[in-house]
């Protein structure tokens, strides 16, 4: 469990503000459990052995939508339990994300909209070589001022 960040308010959001970097490792078990929770029992998500034997892949894969979920969590963790809500997230799966690899999650606030009380962010997941495997953008909305 992590200590929860204080609730983010629109007034405290600053362009340039950084989310992370957070180091994570997605375990094979996590990737498999996610796939099973989604009803995807395809060999590539089950084990290295299944992925190699059944699909000729070098190792098992992390489901793409799981990486979207992890980047969405980077944003919602940063928001905390205030009025800020994730309104949109878009990701591009550039490369295979193999479980067991050391990954880092990154994010930046890139834009704020005073009228809409919203903010845009860049988010991405990179490997140890700094190669961005999954990249995306997100919008958070804070609702009307109190």
């Amino acid at each position: 469990m992590v200590t929860r960040a204080p609730a983010k308010t629109f007034e405290t959001v600053v362009i340039g503000e950084m989310l992370g970097p957070h180091a994570i490792v997605i375990t094979r078990e996590q990737a498999r459990n996610y796939a099973l929770a989604c009803g995807m029992s395809t060999p590539r998500f089950m084990s290295d052995e299944d992925a190699r034997r059944e699909e000729g892949l070098p190792a098992m894969l992390t489901p793409g939508n799981m990486t979207l979920g992890i980047l969405a969590k980077l944003v919602t963790d940063w928001l905390g339990s205030g009025s800020g809500q994730l309104a949109r997230i878009g990701t591009t799966f550039r490369s295979f994300v193999h479980p067991g690899v050391e990954l880092t999650l990154h994010g930046f606030v890139t834009h704020t909209d005073q009228a809409a009380r919203s903010a845009d962010l860049d988010v991405w997941m990179e490997n140890e070589d700094g190669e961005r495997l999954v990249v995306g953008t997100a919008t958070v909305a804070f609702g009307p001022a109190e």
Partner: peptide
């Protein structure tokens, strides 16, 4: 599965005792 430990998605709402899913 995604390691979501935020109480907002893990604990039922005090109002109606129902869970809310994470956005993703």
């Amino acid at each position: 599965a995604i390691g979501e430990d935020n109480p907002a998605y893990n604990e039922p709402s005090p109002d109606d005792q129902l869970l809310t899913a994470p956005p993703s």
